[in-house]
Each structure stands twice: as structure tokens, then as C-alpha cells.
Simulated assay, not measured.
Amino acid sequence: MSRISIVVFATFLAIISMSEGMSLRGLGVEPRCRCIETESRRIGKLIESVELFPPTPHCEDTEIIATLKGTAQEICLDTKAPWVKKVIQKILSNRKP
């Protein structure tokens, strides 16, 4: 293979991989887990809203992201913490018809 062919092929692969990541973000899907660190301390009184994200092909973990009152800061919650498990149960019970 010539050097030009290798450069063209490498550029093609780079463009395809970049467009795949952008298309997933455009659909509201992150190509990785959102939560790197989680909070296990009780912060229930500080929480304004909570979102539950089920596992996806890009992240095998269930993720819970809480938005804090006043600051609108988003914090990932530890799904193994007992108080967070209660929050999950409440969210799931509210979703059922």
C-alpha cells in the first residue's frame, strides 16, 4: 500500500468514528457513562429533581442524576446507597400506570 492510501484510509476512519459519536450525542445518547463519581451521603433536602437513566449499550450501569436546588448543579447518586434505593423505588412506582 502506498503512503497516500494509508493516510486517506486513516482519515476516513477518523471521520467515521467522529461522526458516530456526534450522531449519538445528537440523539441525546452519550457514547459512555455519564457518572464517573457518585454521592452516597444523604442529600435529599438539597435535591430539586432526579432523573433515572437505565443501562444502555454504551453504559451497563443504571445512573441517577440529581439536580440541586438553587445551584442547578447535577450530582450522580450512588445506586447502592440505601436512601438512593428508596428514591429509585419511588421513581419507578410513579412511572407505572
Rank of each mutant, 00 (worst) to 15 (best):
M1H: 09
R3T: 13
I4V: 15
I4W: 11
I6K: 13
I6W: 14
I6N: 05
F9N: 05
A10C: 13
A10Q: 06
A10D: 03
A10W: 12
T11K: 05
T11C: 10
F12T: 12
F12L: 14
L13F: 15
L13E: 02
A14L: 15
I15M: 12
S17C: 05
M18N: 09
M18S: 14
M18I: 10
S19E: 12
E20F: 15
M22Y: 15
S23P: 01
S23R: 12
L24I: 01
R25N: 06
R25V: 13
R25Y: 13
G26A: 13
L27I: 03
V29Q: 05
P31K: 02
P31I: 02
P31C: 04
R32P: 01
R32W: 15
C33Q: 00
C35L: 09
C35M: 05
I36R: 07
E37G: 03
T38M: 08
E39F: 11
R41S: 15
R41M: 09
R41E: 08
R41K: 14
R42D: 15
R42A: 10
I43K: 01
G44E: 15
G44C: 05
G44W: 02
K45L: 10
L46H: 05
L46V: 00
L46M: 08
L46S: 11
I47C: 00
E48K: 09
S49I: 02
S49D: 10
S49T: 13
V50G: 01
E51T: 08
E51H: 03
L52P: 00
L52N: 01
F53W: 06
F53S: 03
F53M: 10
P54C: 04
P54S: 07
P55K: 04
P55S: 07
P57K: 03
P57W: 02
P57A: 04
C59F: 06
E60G: 07
D61V: 02
D61S: 11
D61F: 08
T62W: 07
E63F: 02
E63I: 01
I64G: 00
I65Y: 00
A66I: 04
A66N: 02
T67H: 01
T67M: 05
L68Y: 06
L68F: 03
G70Y: 04
G70E: 06
T71N: 11
T71W: 05
T71Y: 05
A72K: 12
A72Y: 11
Q73H: 04
Q73C: 00
E74V: 05
E74R: 14
I75Q: 08
C76D: 09
C76I: 10
C76V: 09
L77V: 08
L77T: 01
D78F: 11
D78C: 09
D78Y: 03
T79D: 08
T79C: 06
T79V: 15
T79E: 12
T79I: 14
K80L: 14
A81Q: 04
A81D: 08
A81G: 11
P82V: 00
V84F: 11
K85V: 09
K85H: 05
K86R: 14
I88P: 00
I88L: 13
I88A: 03
I88S: 01
Q89V: 00
K90Y: 12
K90N: 13
I91A: 03
I91V: 15
I91D: 04
L92V: 00
L92Q: 13
L92C: 06
S93L: 09
S93I: 03
S93C: 01
S93W: 06
N94W: 06
N94D: 12
R95A: 09
K96L: 14
K96R: 15
K96D: 06
P97L: 01
